[in-house]
Nucleic acid binder design. Structure first.
Lengths: 350, 350
DNA sequence: ATTGGCACTCGAAGGGGTTGAGTGCTAAAA
DNA sequence: TTTTAGCACTCAACCCCTTCGAGTGCCAAT
């Protein structure tokens, strides 16, 4: 069922051409651009066969061929992974990611922006999944009567906080007492092991009445759980309007409507990421056209990969672009962004 | 130079019609829809005059008229401020804003989303200007050697924090000592009075060497200054693709490109807001078409108003829509969102 | 198996006619 | 003086027709 060498070469040539021109490629034009030692007639026969096999499509009878999803898939699968990325690009990416950074979240935001700028497509970064990280610190600060700030520090170097309501008449000291007890009990525990029960049972000997105590502990618990909320950065949405495949306003609208729902996109990427299991060098998740089950993305390609926090695979980073894209180039760019991001996260987490 | 009553009525009718149909309105059609006691010929004469005066425009000789920017301006200025907003809408807005709220920032985000949903246009909310608020608390927490979290609580009920680098060998106690000294010195001070000098001179008697101390204080200072950074929520950008005036993909792209730069939009709104000085009921800032100096917004109208934190006018809230919009309706919506937001902020700040 | 040749296809682009909602102007009516 | 009926004119939108050309499939010859 696999294609012979010549068919592969022809398919590659067609995809390459179509990617640059965005117009159906015909037999003559193909011969002119590449120097095949073939007549157009032979090429036509081959193309007819490729079409019969499902790798090519005709927009209409008298037009050239365009790659089908299957064609792109074959093209992508047999792509040699060369890094075609200039030194200037490397520098720009490094600068883009490592500029004005205090926390991991700054890195992630920068990476999203940089990726969008460099590729010209929509980029997205999912915040790390933190269920495996363990809690290193938990502090509660009284802000005013009835209000406290819970600060949570995780092993992944992530700091989060949340304002919570507490009983009005609790004093500074009482809050701090509870805070210390909770911290002592929970620090070192992985986020996923922490349950409402672990939290409520963490404070034993205290002068504070149980009902008040439980209220505070419940709030602390919600604060902890909220830390693990999946967040997503999506950048460069407006760029799709510059792509010829979205010159149809209806298509553009469908796509943007879908992308407007960050949460949905995030969920989808997370699903995708979960199926990834291959080795380091090749761990891209590529979904082409119909393979994507999100509405409005039928003409898109989704490329994601993962980045690491504390040497644990944890978040996803990738782009959404048209099917018709320079795959080698974009993959190189994502790859380098991933690498840079990994390095910078390591630096920042000491 | 002011228009007579009939001309005003005609202009109003034309704008009303154009707003609903998005098509040039002609003399006959206008008579049919409204029951003018006029012949079409008279109407034509009046329309010709209105055009001469600059209130109307013709897309081409044989089409109807559309309002010019000046026409819209006249229309808006003579608009009676009635609240046309149903009880269901009120409820939706109230629910939209007050759902799952812990902090002021949650309210702002909710308000942005609600406004976008209700109007169908792009909505934006600027975070409050905090220069007038005073600092009530400042805590520094060691996260790990070399890294600390600065938590800042303001009178406006706003809590912000920032991770900062500190000298590696400072201990928990030393950080806390500095923190207390700084807090004691600065609490009660307005954000705008705090300078690097106030901060660095706040810690006197200490065992910590000056050079280290200054490093920490400098970081604390940057954290304080960062609190006042203007932030902007922009929501519903994708909705403009559904508007007929942006069925031209080029225009849509220009607009979205501009809106992609949140900071620029924020800056512009802030400028606008500054010129607002009128009384409570009428404090809308309306900019129509050419009056807007941002690229790509020539066909848009910008409506903003202000909301209050601690009874001080402080942030801006508004929408960006097409010139052709139901002004009364949209103004009512913004007005009610503003009111609800003000109320909820009061509630949350106790 | 490859190729030259040929008839065929069909979208894009361009020209021409029709339609219809709109205009401005004029002369008569109010 | 203002209003109105009437009329000639305008022009985008629409449809239809033709032409053009890059493309195809197929067949017979190499």
């Amino acid at each position: 069922m696999s294609l012979d060498a010549r068919k592969k070469e022809i398919l590659k040539a067609i995809v390459d051409d179509y990617v640059t021109t965005c117009e159906p490629v015909g037999s003559k034009a193909l011969i002119e651009r590449h120097n095949f030692t073939l007549s157009s007639a032979t090429l036509r026969n081959e193309m007819a066969e490729l079409e019969k096999l499902g790798y090519l499509e005709k927009p209409h009878t008298s037009a050239g061929r365009i790659p089908s999803d299957k064609g792109y898939r074959e093209y992508v699968n047999s792509l040699a992974h060369v890094d075609i990325i200039t030194n200037e690009e490397r520098e720009e990416i490094e600068k883009g990611i490592a500029t004005s950074v205090d926390e991991v979240s700054d890195l992630l935001r920068n990476a999203t922006n940089t990726l969008a700028t460099q590729t010209g497509y929509v980029s997205l970064v999912l915040t790390p999944s933190l269920t495996k990280s363990y809690l290193t610190q938990l502090k509660m600060l009284m802000i005013e009567p009835g209000k406290a700030l819970v600060v949570i520090v995780l092993s992944a170097g992530v700091v989060k906080d949340k304002v919570v309501k507490i009983p009005n008449f609790l004093t500074d000291e009482q809050v701090s007492e509870i805070s210390k007890a909770v911290e002592q009990q929970l620090s070192g525990k992985a986020l996923e092991e922490i349950t409402l029960i672990t939290v409520t049972s963490s404070v034993k000997d205290t002068t504070i009445p149980d009902s008040l105590l439980n209220q505070v502990l419940y709030e602390a618990y919600t604060a902890i759980k909220q830390v693990d909320k999946l967040d997503v950065y999506l950048e460069g949405k407006h760029k799709i309007l510059s792509l010829p495949e979205f010159s149809d306003i209806g298509k553009a609208r469908d796509l943007l409507d879908t992308l407007a729902d960050d949460g949905m996109v995030a969920g989808y990427v997370k699903e995708l990421g979960a199926t990834s299991s291959s080795d380091e060098r090749d761990s891209y998740m590529i979904r082409i056209g119909q393979e994507i089950t999100l509405e409005g993305l039928e003409d898109c390609t989704f490329i994601t990969t993962t980045y690491k926090v504390n040497d644990v695979v944890s978040g996803n980073i990738g782009i959404i672009g048209p099917k018709r894209m320079e795959y080698s180039k974009v993959i190189s760019q994502i790859n380098f962004v991933r690498k840079t991001l990994n390095d910078e996260i390591k630096k920042i987490n000491g």
